[in-house]
Write a protein that binds this DNA or RNA. Structure first.
Lengths: 245, 245
DNA sequence: GGGGTTATTGATCAAATCGTGAAATTGGCG
DNA sequence: CGCCAATTTCACGATTTGATCAATAACCCC
């Protein structure tokens, strides 16, 4: 059984993170100790992200990550204290970015529609940032997404820290949906989000069952096929829900 | 990293399962060696089901299961060979039952509607058996469902054996949907199922995020609230999809 | 009621796991 | 250069984990 999880070793001795370098050097490969450190941390997180997304947090050992990243296990403890620390760092690295992008996308749409949002517009604005990254974000983001899918079906849900990044963008979504369908009941909006979320989550999970079911007609990670269909799917569904009373 | 998983120790020495008792004694607590054995196996599987559903397969040790079931670890090996064996036994115990129930429910509906199924009828018939068990099946079935939700977001998907129980009922669902919406494109039917499946899956996962998001208005395991809404949700969505061309 | 089979236990192993502390390396800076 | 701190490696200990084997207990049948 997994230990009571984190928060049991304050790890006082660990040194502070180095301050950001004064001069921003992003063009070519940055040199210097701090930059090098940041790069190895990123390598570790990349490896952990990939492994976690495949086998879950308990299916991966610290050694696995260290080997994949090409460093010693002690280095992981040095940078991230313990396994939970690595896991959390993996999630936090991208959680903020994607959710501010979501919120921004929704805000942009709210502005563009001049206070009269359509269901389709809202749904599209909410989904667009994720799918854009799924298509163009490289393997890293796809691993991250698959990991989110895994964590999403657990009570852990990333140890509780991550949800605080995701919640605001969802609340913004609900707000706009409320505007778009004023006759809908409050609970129904949340249930609608729940159903949307489940469908979205399965989309970027590592489950390719649909390929077998459809005899190769559909592939689970064919995001170009999924995005318009999911938008349409949720739009119809919300519309039926909003028209009910 | 998890081992290449099962299929590496033929475990020749393990004795055969005992033959079913000649006399069926189901009314009161069955006595006899075979019955007792079956009961302890069930206790083990119950414990494993619960633990796996919470922490995933790699988050639970054989000792954890043995302790929870109140037996020695060696007994688990005796009955199920190894850890993967336990996991598979947990899944197989209910996978067949629920899916034949699903298929039967769909067949019944197909008969009742006299070859002219409605989208709503099909969706309802597909979902009804699960929700009935989620409401009345006791904690055991809920644990099982949560475990399925967990496994569903993995490429493992239960080691590959379980899908063969699930697939036929899904194919039957698709067939009937095809009848209900003859103008729909083939791929869209499968994508629709994928979205339905994701929403359903999240419903019985252990994620209660919706409770927080809705400030207590909705609770993730309020199946009485979910079932009618999910039926309506998917019906509207499929309808929009079927009307498109 | 004893013999044989099945079910269950206790003791134990080898490998894997997380984590630590001391040593070695690296780079920045006077 | 030569010191100092941040980074990285090496070697190791304590614990957990999956699994096995012999020994015991429960049961059934003759």
């Amino acid at each position: 059984m997994p230990k009571p999880s984190a928060a049991q070793k304050p790890s006082v001795k660990r040194p502070q993170k180095p301050p950001r370098r004064g001069v921003a050097d992003a063009a070519h490969v940055a040199s210097g100790k701090a930059a090098r450190s940041r790069r190895t941390q990123a390598r570790i997180l990349d490896a952990a992200e990939e492994l976690f997304s495949h086998h879950g947090i308990y299916g991966v050992s610290i050694r696995d990550i260290a080997d994949a990243a090409g460093v010693d296990t002690a280095l992981l403890h040095y940078h991230f204290a313990n396994k939970d620390g690595i896991y959390e760092a993996v999630l936090l690295r991208r959680a903020g970015e994607i959710n501010t992008a979501r919120t921004r996308s929704l805000d942009d749409y709210a502005l563009a529609c001049a206070g009269r949002p359509s269901i389709e517009g809202v749904v599209r604005a909410y989904l667009q940032p994720v799918f854009e990254r799924l298509r163009n974000g490289g393997r890293g983001f796809n691993n991250f997404a698959a990991l989110i899918a895994l964590a999403n079906n657990t009570e852990l849900w990333g140890g509780g820290t991550v949800k605080e990044y995701f919640d605001p963008s969802v609340q913004r979504l609900i707000e706009l949906l409320r505007l778009a369908m004023p006759k809908a009941r409050e609970e129904d909006l949340y249930w609608g989000y729940q159903f949307l979320s489940g469908a979205l989550t399965l989309s970027y999970s590592r489950n390719d069952r649909i390929k077998w079911l459809s005899h190769g007609l559909c592939r689970a990670n064919d995001y170009a096929a999924i995005e318009p269909r999911l938008v349409e799917w949720c739009t119809s569904a919300f519309r039926g829900l909003g028209a009910r009373r």
